[in-house]
Design a protein around this nucleic acid. Structure first.
Length: 232
DNA sequence: CCAGACGTTGTT
DNA sequence: GTCTGG
DNA sequence: CCAGACGTTGTT
DNA sequence: GTCTGG
């Protein structure tokens, strides 16, 4: 699945250039830092269409559908399966109208038992930014009236490299397909949700990554699995 | 018609 | 075992 | 995704 | 909000 990822690029402006997007006015005030351990419930950057324009903004990871009675359902909706996303009632409509791109430079998958969960990082071979396919929605809090914008990340079958570690991976779009994901028909968009075919590399990383309260550069450094100390 | 659901992962 | 929080 | 909590009463 | 099941 896709339950953690990194985005080391802290310059929102640079991310916006890569995705040919305009920075959302609400983002300018938010200071950014490099992120190595982005977890569900946290805010992530996302590119959405607003009319003819791509807007780079911030969404909370964990979809809260517009019809939800309260925001807690978002905890259970961090991912949507590519194989069924067009059937599922909670996602069907969003697939037609609210697709987005989530910028990322590595994602993590785990192997092993609960007592010794070992994470691995996966990145493009060239280290470049890429986009995970997402769906977003806006939810109005009936109490306060404030609007919460949220996102879910689509998962698909693993490619050869990821399948060694895990049986799911995020739906990564080729750069050439990003425009179609944002603007083309649902049928055309659905055809883009395939296991990533580009060259990737992977390496084991620190088990400190397991705890979402850690977030520093050491988390993405390669480790030797056999030499990791007990940490919890 | 109304009521009730609307999700994924991993683990067993 | 299952849910919540990060 | 994983980690950590999972509870109430009364008193400070 | 929208769909499914009864």
């Amino acid at each position: 699945m896709c339950g953690r990822f990194s985005l080391k690029e802290a310059e929102v402006r640079k991310v916006a250039v890569r995705f040919r997007a305009t920075v959302d006015a609400r983002l300018s005030a938010e200071p950014m830092r490099p992120r190595y351990n982005i977890a569900p419930t946290q805010n992530v950057l996302a590119v959405r269409m607003e009319g003819e324009e791509r807007i780079l903004g911030s969404l909370k990871w964990g979809l809260v559908p517009s019809w939800a009675k309260d925001a807690s359902v978002g905890n259970q909706m961090t991912n949507a399966r590519a194989e069924t996303v067009r059937e599922r009632l909670a996602y069907r409509q969003l697939f037609r109208t609210r697709r987005c791109l989530v910028p990322c430079d590595a994602f993590y998958e785990w192997t092993g038992e609960r007592a010794a969960k070992q994470p691995y990082a996966f990145a493009r071979a060239d280290g470049a930014l890429f986009a995970i396919a997402g769906l977003w929605d806006a939810w109005s809090d009936p109490q306060s009236g404030s609007v919460l914008e949220t996102v879910t990340l689509i998962t698909t079958q693993p490619n050869a490299m990821v399948s060694v570690i895990h049986d799911r991976m995020p739906a990564i779009l080729r750069e050439a397909d990003e425009e179609a994901w944002l603007t083309d028909t649902p049928d055309a968009a659905a055809a883009l949700l395939r296991p990533f075919g580009g060259e990737m590399r992977s390496w084991p990383v620190s088990r400190r990554l397991n705890s979402a309260r850690f977030d520093d550069a050491s988390l993405i450094a390669p480790v030797r699995v056999s030499e990791q100390p007990e940490l919890f």
